[in-house]
Simulated scan of single mutants.
Amino acid sequence: MAEAEVEYISDFFSTHEADRIYAALLRELAWHQGDVYVFGQWHKTPRLQAWHGESSLTYEYSGKSLIAEPWTDTLNEIRSRLVEHGFEPNAVLANQYRDGNDKMGWHSDDEPELGDEPVILSLSFGAVRDFDLRHKKTKKSYRIALEHGSLLIMKGNTQKFWQHQLPKRKRESSARINLTFRTIFS
């Protein structure tokens, strides 16, 4: 992909590990349905979310401010595995897509507190869902089926030149949890 650094690891966690993590995340995280400001109006977020990280970390996007909840045991376990691979995230945005009607629209993770070349570590658990990438200028696009236990890494200029989305899939009845680990700079 031109002007991007994207890596996909389909089996970052084994199926057994991914099953255990998925069940733990459903129990441990304080899931809520927030609001998002889009095109001048507030709307219910089309998914459930949880924001965790180092104490007092704040993340601002789409007109709202999230204050980090403490790390859970499972999130710390996953973060330790990422540190072993050379990454040191200090926060995670968790999204629970309850079925194929839940989605995430086109966007880039380019908020100032993520730095000039953010590293986004996207882990998937549960149902396989399509993940689309689209170049901001050329509109060239790619689709990746994010598998249970997989890791997608976006870094370098990816957020500057590309957008991504998780589109609706009405035929999908199973849930998916996505964890996007990142580093917030104060």
Rank of each mutant, 00 (worst) to 15 (best):
A145H: 12
Q41W: 04
L26Q: 14
E113V: 13
L25V: 09
L152H: 08
G40F: 05
L29D: 03
E88G: 09
S122L: 12
L25M: 13
E5P: 00
M104D: 13
Y97A: 10
T74P: 05
R79N: 08
V36P: 07
A4W: 09
G53T: 03
T45M: 15
A4Y: 07
G53E: 06
N76M: 14
S186I: 02
E3H: 15
L166A: 07
A145R: 15
E84N: 15
L133F: 15
G86N: 01
A24N: 04
E172L: 12
W42A: 04
L93I: 06
N76C: 10
W106A: 12
I67Q: 12
I177W: 07
I9Y: 13
F125P: 07
M1P: 12
A175E: 06
F185E: 00
A2T: 12
G86L: 02
S174F: 10
Q96Y: 15
G126L: 08
P167K: 06
L151W: 08
L93A: 07
G149C: 11
Y61A: 01
S108R: 00
E172T: 09
E172P: 01
T180P: 02
S56Y: 14
W42Q: 08
S62K: 11
V119Q: 14
H107A: 08
D99I: 01
F181H: 05
L133G: 03
S150F: 13
L123K: 00
R98D: 00
A91W: 04
E7W: 10
W162Y: 02
L25A: 08
S55K: 12
G149H: 12
P70T: 05
L166K: 02
G156A: 13
G126H: 11
Y59S: 05
Y61P: 00
A18W: 05
K155M: 12
S174G: 06
E113D: 14
N101P: 01
R47D: 04
H52M: 00
E111K: 13
P167Q: 10
L66F: 15
K155C: 13
K140P: 04
S108W: 04
L26E: 12
S174H: 13
K139W: 02
Y8E: 09
V6L: 15
G156M: 04
P89F: 15
E54H: 06
